[in-house]
Structures are given as C-alpha cells and as structure tokens.
Design a protein around this nucleic acid. Structure first.
Length: 541
DNA sequence: ATCGCAAACGATCTTAAAGGGAACTTTAA
C-alpha cells in the first residue's frame, strides 16, 4: 500500500516525463499541482473512499481515476506509457540536483546521453559545455551532483527502513508466533541513514538462509537493500548476540572485550555485571562515551511543547486551531506556531498584515483557553545579507523568532557563515532553524563551521533546532555534545505541516538521544512556566 | 488537467538567483 508521498511522487514523475516529451505545459502543471497537494496530506489516500478524492483541491476526474488505478496496481497506465518511452537512465538523470527536465532533455537529445554514468564521463571530456545553455560552471556542478547522488544510492532513510522492518517483523511473526524478534545493527542504533535492516530472532529454524530466496514472493528478501537476519540459540534468548550485533565498531572495541555474559536477564544486566555504565543502543555511535546517567537522557515524554509548526496561514494543511487541538490531544502543554515569513513566496509567507491577523487569532485562543497556550512565533527567512525578514518593531512582537535559511542555499562556507552569524547576532533571534539546510540523501546542505556557530549561539543565548523531520535531522546528532559543553539549548522541533507531522518529534528525540542530549539541555522539555521564563530571559536589549 | 464562474469556456501568473551570453532560460526554495 503506497504512502501519500509515494503517490504524490508518481504524479511529479509523470509531470517531469511529460515535460521531457513536450506535452501541454498546462496539463503537466495540473499533475504538478496534484503532487504538491497530495504530498502534504496526512490522511492516507488509499484508505479514503474514492468519491472523496475528487473533493480534494487539484484532483479532478482524470486524476481520481488514476488514483483508483494506483490503488489496484500501484501504478497507472499513463505513467507506464511515459516510462516506457524514456530510457531508465534518463529518468534517473531527472533526480540529479541542478538538472531539470529542460536540461535533461537537451543532454539526452543533443548529446545522446542516456545515463548519469555517461553524463559524468561526458563532463570529464568537457563535452557538456558544447551545449547551448551550458558552461564550465554547470559542468562542474553536474559532476559534483552526480558524485553526491551516486554516494547515496545504497542508503535509505531511517524512517523508511524502520517502517519496512516492522513489516518484516510481522511476516516473521506469522511464520512463527512464538519467535522473539528485535531490531539490531544500525537500525537499532537509529542511525539517520541506513544501508539495510538487521534483525535478531530466535526459534527461526524454519528460516534457513536458502529459504530466504524461496520466500521471495512473501517479501522476506529484498532487492533494494539487505535484510540480515541473525538467529540465536533457540532455547535461550541471547543478549550477548543482541549486544554484539547492534554495537558500532568503536563501541565493540571499547566495551565488548572480555565481558562476562552468563545469565544476563537483559542487556543492561550485562553492563551492570561487568561494572560498566549502561549505554543505550542509540548512543553507541559516539566516538567517546561520556559519563552520563542514562535516566537524564532526553525521552519522548519529557517533551512538553511543540516548537516550530506551520498552519494554513502559510504552507501548512491545517488551521491554527486544529494544530493546537492536536497538540493538546497528544498531551503537550503549548504550541509555538511558526509560519513562514514574507520572503518565502513559494510557501505563502506572511505579510505584515497577515502576521497581525494571526496574532489576533492567537490572542483570541489564549483568552479562551487557560490550559493550553499558543506562543507567537515566526520562521523568519535569513535573507542573503544575514538580516531577518521584518523590521525590528515587528520582530519584537513575537514570543519566539526562529531564523532559518530557505533561499540561495548554494553558498561557500564564508558566505554561509557570514549569513548565519549575522542572524544569530540579531537580538531578536531565539532559535537557529535547521542549521545546514541539508536534506538527507538528496541535498548536501551548505558548509558551516559548527564549532563557531555553536559558540555564537552560546554568546547570544540562541537555541539550536534539531529539526525532527526524518529527512533533515539537522542539527546533526554529532554536534550535540559540543552544544551542551557550551551550554546551548537544543530544541527538538517537528517543523510540522500537518497533524501527523507533529509526531515526527519522535525521530528528533531518537537523534537527540543518539547525540546524548540530556533533558536539561532540551529547550522544549521545559514546562510552560519555564518556557515563559526562557522567552523573557534574553538580556541584550 | 483543473478550477471557477457561469452555463461552455477561458485562465492557468512566485520569485530571485545563477549561469551563460549579452537578453534570457532554468532551477529551486
């Protein structure tokens, strides 16, 4: 069953392919609009009644019919026809950053290049610059993009493989209801990007390796990524094996030599019996293992407030009130609503008038509700010169200003640092949003000096966002220790654009734990009164 | 292909930077 994003991507793919084949630009714009609408939806399309599809804005008769086809077969005829008349390698080229349909078309038709490999070769031979509209700079960038693209081919997002892994677990459980099955390997350590799935099972005599192949039809084996199934002693669930198969290399060498394992009742027991501090699985990628009390490590239930979410005022799918109600339902105490600022045109950023309109709505809510509070925030674009997106007297009116870069991400380190440092130094900035702008496996993000950024945040009492979207997880977990050393708070922010998106906080908490974030260093683990104190704590006015 | 206003059809409209090539196209947020 396809997810909304996967379905949306099919229409995006169709639009690109149609453009490649010179179809009616308005037609393909409709598919592009459908893509934009569907990717943001959090109600699963495949679980909706077919007649409901047509109610959605951007979905008419034709696309609703295609959705029905997708429900039946996972794809639709029109798409398959366009796929058929486009070489697979050309389709792959469409996924390379910096190449849109126009450029791919000219590479394909003028140079007869039909794959990224051939394209890289042609760049090496200086042949791309012959094309009209291409030059030395583009040729160089294309080579870099292809290298980045290639290097990511064997990796998958944690969120993707976790979902798949749960599917495998249920398959295995069907084969043997009594089996004990656990995630292990990098999946258990919650690495943000993974090469495959590792599972540890007992009593799996029914599953000899050669059988994996035979069971192809049931999806036990997989073509895109390896599924490693470790089998331990059927009579005795083996914590040694769990520990060994889930440790990183540095963890193995530092901890797993000469350990006594006998009669361990759980994993923690092995640590205790050997006089070692317990290191939770997700923390085992750290270079050095800090002395911490595991109980102080951030937990999902420590998060008191939802910081950084969007509403229909900008590019969110749900109203301010709906977002607030969902946060309440999930047990949070407050919502820090942060729509896009006025320069974010593509995201329907808020003009000054519309900011004021939203403020009135927030005041209304807060006047009526004393049990759940909405704070006024903005995700302000950091403009090219490092300034924020509104005049000071407007910025002053927000409870929280989150400063993020959204445009002109192609920067060298000097430019990026200048831009970010200026934003951090701005007296109104309270949180630095997704510090590198990376999208895991798809966009590298601009280069920054993390030490200097964190130092500046410490000097200016600016918290750093750990954007919890599984595609971002930016600030990277590796920098959390340094942030804590400098006393910088980390805010685990969902950046939600719909109700479901709020629950991305879970991925953020995993990444935070991975970096060893302690509860006391997490901004949104503050309860509402602590959070209010933090808001009024900035002292450099 | 979809929408919206209207009753069969016309309009579809983000914007700015970058790069290449001397005015404009392409891409990406």
């Amino acid at each position: 069953m396809l997810t909304n994003k996967e379905i949306a991507n099919l229409f995006h793919e169709l639009a690109s392919l149609m453009e490649l084949h010179d179809e009616n630009p308005f037609k393909l714009r409709s598919y592009e609009n459908a893509y934009l609408a569907l990717r943001k939806m959090d109600i699963p399309l495949m679980e909706m009644e077919p007649q409901e599809w047509k109610q959605l804005k951007g979905i008419g008769t034709a696309i609703a019919e295609k959705l029905a086809e997708i429900k039946n077969s996972g794809t639709f005829q029109t798409l398959e026809q366009f796929r058929e008349k486009t070489p697979p390698g050309v389709q792959t080229m469409l996924r390379i950053k910096g190449l849109g349909p126009k450029k791919v078309k000219s590479i394909w038709k003028e140079l007869n290049i039909e794959s990224p490999g051939e394209l890289a070769y042609a760049c090496g031979e200086n042949r791309l610059i012959e094309l009209k509209g291409f030059g030395a700079k583009i040729q160089e960038d294309v080579l870099k993009s292809i290298a980045f693209f290639d290097s990511n081919q064997k990796y998958f997002l944690f969120s993707t493989l976790e979902r798949e892994a749960l599917h495998y677990v249920s398959l295995l459980r069907n084969l043997n209801p009594h089996a004990r099955i656990e995630f292990t390997g990098a999946l258990r350590r919650a690495l943000p990007v993974l090469e495959g799935i590792d599972l540890l099972v007992d009593q799996m005599d029914i599953l000899q390796p050669e059988e994996y192949q035979q069971r192809d039809g049931e999806g036990i084996w997989n073509e895109s990524y390896p599924v490693n199934i470790y089998v331990c002693d059927p009579d005795n669930w083996n914590f040694e094996m769990l520990l060994r198969t889930s440790g990183s290399e540095s963890f193995q060498t530092q901890f797993l030599t000469n350990l006594q394992y006998q009669h361990a009742t759980d994993e923690m027991d092995i640590f205790v019996k050997n006089g070692l501090p317990f290191i939770p699985a997700e923390c085992r990628d750290m270079d050095t293992f800090p002395d911490f009390d595991e109980n102080q490590l951030l937990k999902q239930e420590d998060i008191c407030g939802v910081v950084h979410a969007h509403s229909t005022y900008s590019d969110g799918m749900y109203s301010l009130e709906d977002m607030a109600k969902e946060c309440m339902r999930l047990g949070y105490q407050y919502l820090v609503i942060s729509d896009h600022s006025r320069s974010a045109f593509y995201a329907n950023g808020l003009s000054i008038e519309r900011v004021e309109q939203q403020w009135r709505a927030i005041d209304d809510w807060n006047n009526k509700s004393d049990q759940f509070k909405i704070f006024k925030a903005i995700e302000s674009d950091i403009l090219n010169d490092g300034s924020l997106d509104y005049p000071d007297d407007m910025l002053q009116g927000f409870d929280v200003v989150i400063a993020s870069v959204h445009s002109n991400l192609k920067m060298d380190e000097t430019k990026a640092m200048h831009r970010l440092l200026r934003a951090i130094e701005n007296p109104y900035t309270r949180i630095l949003g997704h510090p590198t702008g990376r999208l895991l496996l798809s966009r590298p993000g601009y280069p920054i000096n993390h030490h200097k950024i964190i130092d500046a945040c410490a000097a200016h009492q600016v918290a750093i966002e750990l954007n919890a979207n599984p595609l971002r997880l930016d600030l990277d977990w590796k920098w959390i220790q340094y942030a804590m050393e400098k006393g910088v708070l980390v805010s685990v922010n969902p950046d939600a654009h719909n109700l479901k998106g709020i629950q991305d906080i879970r991925y953020g908490v995993l990444a935070a734990r991975k970096g060893g974030l302690l509860k006391n260093y997490c901004l949104n683990s503050k309860n509402i009164s602590e959070f209010k104190t933090w808001i009024s704590s900035k002292s450099n006015f």
